[in-house]
């Protein structure tokens, strides 16, 4: 997708999801919004096959990988909220999120493979948008529009802080 040299000293952002699965496209929309903003020092991808895109190519040349995906809302994480966490902190994502799917590899499996293959950069941030149902349609719930904008703004803000820390 990008020659390795292009990734040096940049953040790579991968928005994950499926356009045809309703709310699952929220991660893609965040990435598209960031792409339209023209962020400096950031390489942005939209991926409908995130496990393969995460694990088939090395991101180790980048300094930071940002993965944006969706998850089903629950009592702790209502619809329209989001969280950010560091991939290497807390419980193992593959255990926490899902077991291996019999039909495809998900984001957690892709990250696990990439980590074991030494393809992840020093920092990996995960942004998760919490949604209601994932069903086959082309549109997003209205409740998520604001969340998409909020996550994009948060990433932009976090990147500014990250760049400032990197300069120091």
């Amino acid at each position: 997708m990008y020659p390795a040299g292009d990734l040096r000293h940049v953040a790579r952002i991968i928005g994950c999801g499926r356009w045809s699965m309703g709310n699952d496209q929220a991660g893609l929309l965040v990435a598209r919004r960031l792409h339209e903003r023209g962020l400096p020092d950031a390489v942005i991808d939209l991926s409908e096959q995130p496990a393969i895109d995460l694990a088939a190519e090395s991101h180790a040349e980048a300094e930071l990988l940002i993965v944006v995906d969706t998850a089903r809302a629950d009592d702790v994480h209502p619809i329209g909220t989001f969280v950010r966490f560091d991939y290497r902190e807390g419980p193992r994502l593959l255990d926490a999120v899902q077991r291996l799917d019999s039909h495809s590899l998900g984001v957690a499996a892709g990250l696990e493979l990439a980590e074991r293959l030494g393809m992840l950069p020093p920092q990996v941030w995960i942004y998760v948008l919490f949604c209601g149902a994932f069903e086959r349609r082309l549109t997003l719930d209205a409740a998520l529009d604001e969340c998409v904008a909020a996550v994009a703004a948060a990433i932009e803000r976090d990147l500014v802080a990250w760049r400032a820390r990197r300069r120091n």
């Binding site: 291996l100 499996a109 696990e112 493979l113 074991r116 293959l117 030494g118």
Partner: peptide, 17 residues
């Protein structure tokens, strides 16, 4: 599974991907 294979046989998994 393929997950531990990535540690024991990384070249095999890279090729597969």
């Amino acid at each position: 599974s393929v997950i531990p294979l990535a540690s024991t046989h990384p070249d095999v998994v890279r090729r597969a991907l």
